[in-house]
């Protein structure tokens, strides 16, 4: 076996954001994920690579999907997984994140997958711990593995992201998925538009190199990929837009509106969907929809990230 593979490689201890990654690093994760995808098609969906490693999923926000995806990924690599769910209410009055971190460190985990409602929490944890930290979503800031699986899905279908036009539709302001995808797709050479009502588009977002549209038809015109974001009705209705009905009428993806897209355009959604609000059922289940592929690729991407980080530089190896 060639030793050349050792020369290049992944040196990071943590995966905290897409913003911090180079194009080459993103490419490396996506290539690795492509290779890992095959494992999930085998009868025996397991390789021994991370045998003896401990992966803790630490979730301060409920998310069955992401947690399960990480857990399956870790198990397919033969790692031991432990799931900890913390209710946010106990965080505020209970021990500090740093206390929690040091307690976990004492149990010598290798990788901690953190979901937290506070932006930057994974960075704090990563700084305090020897273990690798994977950001599984922090507040409104980033959700790097989601963007990676989105990029993997589009790359699979389109061959490359270079020169593609992505339109992200909906609640950009409160979306970590939007931020990570803006950074990721831009780095990979795509053009990115954000589409939504003025209240849901953060002021100054043009500084991230995206174009802003408040008209859905205009915003998705010619797009190769349209990504609808989940609308959190409880939080937004009345304050950020008048009603769900009005939102659906002006910003919901329907078959009629989608005629504006490029031929063979892809429809994506990070889930869970509100059918009939940000996306109509016939679009969600229609021909361009790759929503289920996104879920499948999520496992492969997370296997790739776990694999690469487990070989990343540990604190004590730093010179």
């Amino acid at each position: 076996m060639s030793e050349v593979a050792w020369q290049k490689g992944w040196w990071r201890k943590d995966l905290l954001s897409i913003k911090e990654l180079s194009r080459e690093e993103i490419q490396m994760i996506l290539d690795t994920a492509d290779s890992f995808k095959e494992i999930s098609t085998r009868d025996i969906k397991k390789v021994p690579t991370l045998r003896g490693k401990t992966v803790i999923t630490l979730f301060y926000e409920p998310s069955t999907r992401t947690r399960t995806s990480f857990e399956i990924a870790a198990k397919r690599l033969s790692a031991d997984t432990i799931n900890i769910s913390v209710s946010t209410s106990s965080v505020v009055k209970g021990e500090t994140l740093l206390d929690t971190a040091l307690n976990l460190q004492a149990m010598e985990p290798d990788i901690i997958v953190l979901r937290h409602s506070a932006a930057g929490a994974p960075d704090m944890l990563a700084r305090a711990l020897k273990a690798s930290v994977i950001n599984a979503g922090d507040g409104f800031r980033e959700h790097p593995t989601q963007a990676l699986l989105d990029m993997m899905t589009v790359r699979e279908k389109k061959g490359s992201l270079e020169g593609l036009l992505l339109a992200i539709v909906g609640d950009i302001a409160h979306s970590r998925v939007a931020r990570s995808n803006i950074y990721g797709f831009k780095k990979m050479g795509a053009r990115v538009r954000v589409v939504g009502p003025g209240t849901l588009i953060p002021r100054g977002i043009e500084s991230l190199g995206v174009e802003v549209f408040h008209d859905l038809r205009e915003g998705i015109r010619g797009a190769d990929v349209v990504m609808a974001l989940r609308i959190q009705r409880e939080r937004l209705e009345g304050a950020f837009f008048p009603s769900e009905r009005e939102y659906a009428r002006f910003f919901g993806l329907s078959l009629d509106v989608l005629r504006e897209m490029a031929p063979n355009a892809l429809i994506m959604h990070p889930g869970p969907m509100n059918r009939g609000v940000e996306i109509t059922p016939d679009v969600a289940d229609g021909p361009g929809s790759v929503i289920l592929e996104q879920v499948t690729n999520g496992v492969a991407v997370r296997m790739a990230v776990l694999y690469l980080l487990a070989g990343g530089t540990r604190g004590e190896d730093l010179h």
Binding site: A5, W6, K8, G9, W10, W11, M28, D31, T32, D34, S35, F36, E38, T49, K53, A304, Y307, L308, A310, G311, G312, T313, R314, D317
Partner: peptide, 14 residues
């Protein structure tokens, strides 16, 4: 693997 250097890149098994 996992001896303090980056993991080698994985390619497909077919």
């Amino acid at each position: 693997i996992s001896r303090g250097r980056p993991h080698p890149l994985v390619k497909r098994t077919e």
